Computed example of a mutant assay.
Amino acid sequence: MMLRTFAFLALAMLAGPAFAQQKVNITADLFSIDEATSTAVFTGNVVVVHPTVTVWAPKVVATYGAGGTTDIKTFEATGDVKLETSEQTATGQRAVFTPGDQLLRLTGNVIVVNEGGTVNSDELVVNLATNVSTFTSGQNGRVTGIFTSQ
């Protein structure tokens, strides 16, 4: 439940129709759109604020399809990435969401914290279609968790 709630809120913000239905505020030091490559790039102290999740990153790139910015194909945040909901915080080096397969992938020193505990790994993949969250670690690494009871 811990990660499913987080993933649902994060993905709701990033899915194409959510942009049209919800107010999303994005601030950055620089914003550019490249219509030739269908990319919107935000750089420098990027903050994406949605009613249910806030994302902080040095750089965010959204790739969109024929429907324009409401037709998001990928959403990628890189650098020291932080995603926060009212119930939990997740950090890593790169977060990629692809609406087509409903996968959110957070990689690079992943830490997820909520009132139930903390999980550390190299990668977290959340499949919103199946509600399965998978933590993995790389070579010789281990997934670790500290859980607290209520």
Rank of each mutant, 00 (worst) to 15 (best):
W56H: 10
V46R: 01
K73E: 12
N25M: 07
T107I: 07
T27Q: 14
L124N: 02
L11W: 04
L83N: 03
T43N: 11
V96H: 10
N120C: 06
V125N: 00
F75M: 13
D29K: 13
Q22K: 14
A57G: 11
V112M: 06
T98H: 02
L30A: 06
V24T: 15
N114K: 03
V49W: 05
L9G: 04
P17E: 04
A90T: 11
K82N: 05
S32L: 13
L83R: 10
I111M: 13
Q22Y: 12
E115S: 12
S32P: 05
G65C: 03
G16F: 05
V126T: 02
T52W: 06
P17C: 03
V112Y: 06
W56V: 02
T37H: 05
F42I: 02
V55Y: 02
T63Y: 09
V60Q: 02
N120W: 11
Y64H: 01
V110D: 05
G117K: 07
N120D: 06
V132A: 04
F19P: 04
A36K: 15
V112A: 09
T69I: 12
L103T: 14
E84T: 15
P17Q: 08
P99D: 12
L124W: 03
E87Q: 15
T130P: 11
G16E: 06
V112N: 03
V81S: 08
P58Y: 00
P99M: 15
G79T: 09
N120I: 03
G79M: 12
D71Q: 00
K23L: 08
V47K: 10
V132G: 01
T98I: 07
A95V: 05
